[in-house]
């Protein structure tokens, strides 16, 4: 009986253990000042083109607060994927790891207080010769709407009104863009959309016209073995999947390189077009974007020419 009575002591014991655990869990994660204190150690390890990743992932805003924009260029923070990333700098609280990068070999590892800084090598790295999203500029890109054999150029401006639709509206429309006729959303410019994990993806906004195709011609593109790309619409807005598919075609030197049909519910989805026959050449590359019904086709894509 005495022993059974002892079992009932487990209930108050749970209370005391939970109290101790509460103190532990509420103090174990580093705060803002510790993150700020780490900035000096991160700066020398951060190299251009090698993104900072944070473990656990939810601590990343703290890292952005502490390390600033230099450690988080938009092109790295909202990259399309990791294919052309040679290495990443993993900033980890304690023993945390970023799941996606666990298979990557560790090149170096340093402890700084409660943090671990690891440089990780991409085992499947392929160098990018050209990232199209970085060339949405006059002189490198021309944009036109082609309908019924008539070509209407979209003029470049660097002082368009910057707008954003909030949670339920369009993504941010940048000031630098090739503005086409037909409304504010009819432009080509670099912005950021949310993918199916609500993660950021920097891409070229290319809303197709109601009639005809939107044509983007990038000049003097150094081509490699493949065009590696992704396309999507803001997942939060279009995840119902009721929109008309959008077709993206790529061509160069009069040669069709490939086509991808994007359905909204797929989210940020990838495609690869072989350019083996043109590898090593510098040529113009043309993308055509169209949809059978272009109503609210807030299409965005990102392509890299890989080695």
């Amino acid at each position: 009986m005495q022993r059974l009575a002892l079992l009932w002591l487990l209930v108050p014991a749970v209370g005391l253990v939970e109290l101790g655990a509460q103190f532990w869990v509420s103090t174990r994660a580093p705060g803002v000042s510790q993150w700020r204190g780490l900035a000096k150690s991160v700066a020398p390890l951060k190299r251009p083109g090698e993104p900072v990743v944070v473990a656990p992932e939810w601590a990343e805003p703290l890292a952005r607060l502490a390390f600033g924009d230099d450690a988080f260029p938009l092109a790295e923070l909202a990259r399309a994927d990791d294919r052309s990333v040679p290495r990443v700098l993993e900033v980890a609280e304690g023993g945390a790891r970023a799941d996606r990068y666990r298979p990557w070999p560790v090149l170096s590892e340093e402890r700084h207080g409660g943090f671990t800084l690891r440089v990780l090598r991409n085992p499947e790295y392929r160098a990018a010769r050209y990232r199209f999203v970085e060339h949405v500029k006059p002189g490198e890109l021309t944009v036109a709407v082609v309908a019924g054999g008539v070509e209407r150029p979209c003029e470049y401006t660097d002082h368009a009104r910057v707008t954003a639709g909030g949670l339920h509206g369009p993504v941010a429309f940048p000031s630098e863009r090739f503005q086409c006729a037909g409304g504010d959303a009819m432009f080509v410019g670099a912005t950021v959309i949310d993918d199916q994990d609500y993660a950021p993806r920097r891409c070229i906004w290319a809303h197709p016209p109601q009639n005809g195709v939107l044509r983007l011609r990038f000049s003097a593109v150094p081509l490699g073995a493949a065009l590696h790309g992704f396309a999507g619409l803001s997942y939060f807005i279009y995840r119902d999947g009721v929109g008309t598919p959008v077709r993206l075609e790529a061509a160069s030197s009069g040669r069709q390189l490939g086509a991808s049909v994007h359905r909204d519910e797929a989210g940020w989805s990838g495609f690869d077009f072989s350019t083996t026959a043109l590898a090593g050449q510098t040529a113009d590359v043309e993308f055509s974007v169209s949809s059978a019904d272009a109503t609210r086709r807030d299409f965005c894509f990102s392509v890299e020419a890989l080695e």
């Binding site: 509420s26 994660a29 705060g31 607060l65 910057v162 954003a164 940048p174 950021v192 609500y198």
Partner: peptide, 30 residues
Amino acid sequence: EPHMRRVEFETWVVFGTRSPVAMAVYDGVP
């Protein structure tokens, strides 16, 4: 909230920065 992140991405583009200047942090969690 994850589905609201698009609003933060809009802020990055409109404000031209990815770095918050202040944060409400609870037990180390933003």
